[in-house]
Amino acid sequence: MRHSTLFFLSLACQAGLLALLLTHASFSESLQKTNLARKAELVENLRLTDLCLFTEARYTRHLSQADLNTAFQDHPLSLEHFPSGSFTQPTLEQFLP
């Protein structure tokens, strides 16, 4: 087989695979819809405000509720001593417009 045919074939394969994954994405998106709706319902019932992503310290748990009694985070741009600080910041935009 010619190299160019192989090239286009492999390109098509990769694009096809990607398309397959994107289909998977949109498929699981609709599949997850009820699941998401139920999670949202739980959030609504329990009046939750935040994701349970960062549980290492108290003040990282409910980011939007900013528990201010904690060191190292009074300034919104202060460096975090907790590793999750590299992923989130103490909340910035919580003040009314």
Partner: peptide, 18 residues
């Protein structure tokens, strides 16, 4: 990196949005 020092880390699978 996400887990950091969390003792209690949630198990979750993300819904793909691409």
């Amino acid at each position: 990196a996400l887990k950091g020092w969390s003792a209690l880390y949630p198990h979750f699978s993300l819904t793909p949005y691409v």
